[in-house]
Design a protein around this nucleic acid. Structure first.
Lengths: 208, 208, 208, 208
DNA sequence: GATGAATGAGTGTTCATTCAT
DNA sequence: GATGAATGAACACTCATTCAT
C-alpha cells in the first residue's frame, strides 16, 4: 500500500512516517483532481506536484515515475473495490450475489467517473499494467467456481470480462445511464443468465 | 501553433488518383507493421513515413495528424468487419446469428493481434474516437431489435458491449485462447443466453 | 567527419546537403565558443543551440546527445593534428622531428586553450572515449619505431604519453608558459633525450 | 541559494572526536567503493551517504559539498604518497632517487586502480581541484632543484608532469603493464635522461 | 505533389543541498 | 550531533508539425 513499485531497483523511499503517508495521499488526490478536470492530457508530474502543494522532488521521492502515480490510483481503487466485494457473507441466491458484485464495481471510484475514465485510459494505454486490474476479475470468478468447480479458463474469462468490459465501456463512453438501476439490472441479467447456461450445460457433461 | 487538431476527420486531400491511394495504403501498412513490432511507443510519424518509404511531408499530405492514421487503420477494419457482418442472409437461429457475429469480430484485423491491440489502445487512450468503434456495436443491435423491437437502450448497450468488451479484453490481455473454438463458444453462449433472458422477460410485460 | 556516432542505432540524420554541413559547423563553432567562455559548466545543449542560431531540435538532428558534440570537437581536432603531423617529409634529425611533433600537438585547437581543456575533461570524464585520443599517440610512435624497430610496448607508451601527458597537464592547469618557446624546448629535450637513451641502450643488446 | 560553494576547503567541522574521524573514514571508504564500482556517474552524495550508513545530513556535517569528498580522497592519497616520498634519506645516485619516486607514485592508492582512475577522472573532470595533486609534483622538483638550483619553471614542470602524466595515462587507459618492472624502468629512464640532459646543458651556460 | 531540414514547446527526471525535528 | 523529508533549479531530449525549396 505504501510501496508504489514492486519492480527491481526500488529506489523510492518507503514512507514510514505519518507525514510521508499524508504526502502520498496529497499527491494522489491532486492527481485525481487533475485527471478529473483535464484528463490524461493535463496530467503532468509538475502539475500534479504543484496541485498537491509539494515540490516535484518530493513527488519523485514517493513515485518512481509518472506511471507509478496512475498505477497507485488504480491499485487504491482495486483494493477498496476488493474490500467491498469481500464484505457480504450471507447472500444466498446467485442473482443476489451477482447484483452485489455488479454494484460494487459500478460504485468504484466513488462517483468520480472522469477520474475513473482517465485511470482506465492511462492503464489501457500501455500494454503493461492491465494486470493491475485482474484481482477484481479473479475475485469475480471465486464465487462461480465454488458453484461449478469445473469452470474452464474461457468461462471464467468471459464471465468476468463481460461484466467488467461492459462497465468499462460505459465508463469510457460516459454513458448517462451508468448509475441507473436499469443498467444494473441488465448487467445482473447478463451475469445470471450466462451462469445459468453454464450450469445447465455442465450438469449433464464432464469436462476433460 | 499549439493546437494541432483543427477539426475532426479533416483529411488534407481526398485521394483520387491511383498513386495517391497507393501512398495511403503504403502508409497504413507501415503503420500497422510498426504497431505490430513496437506497439504504440514506437509509433511516431517520422518512423511511419520512413517505413512507408515516403517523406514526412507526404505523410502529412494525406493525414491531418498522427491520430488520423490510427483512426484510418481502425476505420478500415471497422469497414471490412461491417461488410462481413452484412453478408449472411439465410441464417436462421439466433444462436447461429450470434456465432456468426462473434466470429466476424474475432476475425477482424485478420490475425494481427498486436496491431489490433495497439489500435484499440490508441483509440481508447484519448476520449475522442471511441465512437469510431460504435458502428459495429450499432450493427450488432440491429438483429436483436428486429426480434424485440422494444429493447431498451441499456439492453442494446449491454448486449453489444458484453461481446465487444469481452473480446477487447482478450485482445488487450493477449489471451492465448483468443482464436480458439472454446472462447467463441462461450461468447456465443453469453450473447444467446442474455438474448433469451431478455426475450423471456419481455414476453409477459408491456413497455411504456 | 559527418557521422557523429558509430554506435548502434544510429538515429541521427547523416547530413548530405550543403546546408546541413553548414549547420553542423555552426553548432561545433558555437560549442567551442561556449566552452571557451564558460567551460564545461556553461555547456548545455540548449545554450549551444541558441548560440548556433539553430533550434534545439536541429541540434539533435545532427548529434545523438550532448557528448557527441564534445566528441565531434575532439575528433575534428585529432584529424587536423594528424594531418599536420603527416605533412613533413624532409625533416632530418630526430630532434627536428620531435620538435615538429611537439609543436603540432601544442598548436592543436588553434590556441583555444579553454576549449581544449573542456574537451579533454569531457573525454576523460568518462572511461569510454579515451581511445579517441590514441590516434595521435599511435602516430607519434611511428617515427621512433622506424628508427628502432625493437621498441617495446612500454617504451612506445612512455615516449608518447610523456609528451602528450605533459602537454595535457599544461592544458588542464592552464599554464601561462604553454605557448612559449621555452616550454617547447623542454618538451623536445624530453623526447630527444629519452629517445637517445633508448637507442644507446638498444645498440649493444638484443631484445627477446 | 544558487551558489553552492562558498569558499574552497571550508570543512563544516574539524573532526576532533574519535567518532567523527570514524564517520569521515566511513564516508571516504564508501565513496571509494562507489567510484570503484560505478565510476563518477554513480557517485552521488545520497548514494555515498547510504553506502556509508550515515544520513545525508551527517555527510554534509563533514563535507562542505560533493567536491570536498573527492578532494579529501585525493588529498588522503597525496598525503600518504608524500609521506612515502619523504622517507628515503641515504639514496645517492640520481637514478636511484628517480626510481624511488616513480615507484612511490605507481604504488599510490595501494593497488586500487579503479578507485585511482575514478578519483583522477573526477578531479580532472572539473577545472578546479587539479592543484590538489600538485604537492606531489612540487616534491618531485625538490631533489632536482637541490642538484640544479637554476632549474626553470618549465623544466620543473616538464620533469614532474612527464612522470606524473605518463603514469596518469597508464591509469586512465588501464594499461596491463602498469605494475610491471619494465614500465618502471622506462619511467626511470625518462626522468634520468631528461635530468642528465638538463644538467649537461646547464653546465656550460648561465641562465638570465 | 514531394521533400526533409528545421522547429521549439513541452516534459520527465535528477540530485546537491537545506533545515525542522 | 544526527536525521531524512523536502526542495527546486537545472537539463537533456522528443516528436508532431511546418514550409521553403
Amino acid at each position: 500500500m505504501t510501496i508504489h513499485r514492486q519492480a527491481p531497483e526500488r529506489k523510492r523511499r518507503i514512507p514510514r512516517q505519518a507525514r510521508a503517508n499524508e504526502t502520498v495521499a496529497l499527491i494522489l488526490e491532486a492527481a485525481a483532481q487533475i485527471l478529473e478536470a483535464g484528463g490524461l492530457e493535463a496530467f503532468t508530474t509538475n502539475t500534479v506536484a504543484e496541485r498537491a502543494g509539494v515540490s516535484i522532488g518530493t513527488l519523485y521521492q514517493y513515485f518512481a515515475d509518472k506511471q507509478a502515480i496512475l498505477f497507485a490510483l488504480g491499485r487504491q481503487e482495486v483494493q477498496s473495490t476488493l474490500a467491498e466485494l469481500r464484505r457480504p457473507e450471507g447472500h444466498q441466491t446467485p442473482e443476489e450475489r451477482v447484483r452485489y458484485t455488479v454494484r460494487a464495481i459500478i460504485n468504484a471510484f466513488r462517483g468520480r467517473m472522469r477520474v475513473r475514465k482517465a485511470v482506465v485510459q492511462a492503464i489501457l494505454a500501455q500494454g503493461t499494467g492491465i494486470e493491475a486490474m485482474t484481482p477484481v476479475a479473479a475475485f469475480i470468478a471465486n464465487y462461480p467456481r465454488s458453484l461449478i468447480p469445473a469452470l474452464t479458463d474461457e468461462q471464467v474469462f468471459v464471465l468476468s470480462r463481460a461484466l467488467l468490459g461492459t462497465i468499462r465501456a460505459a465508463v469510457l463512453e460516459e454513458q448517462p445511464f451508468f448509475r441507473g438501476r436499469a443498467f444494473e439490472d441488465e448487467l445482473v441479467r447478463l451475469g445470471a443468465s450466462y451462469l445459468s447456461s453454464v450450469i445447465a450445460s455442465t450438469a449433464g457433461s464432464t469436462k476433460g
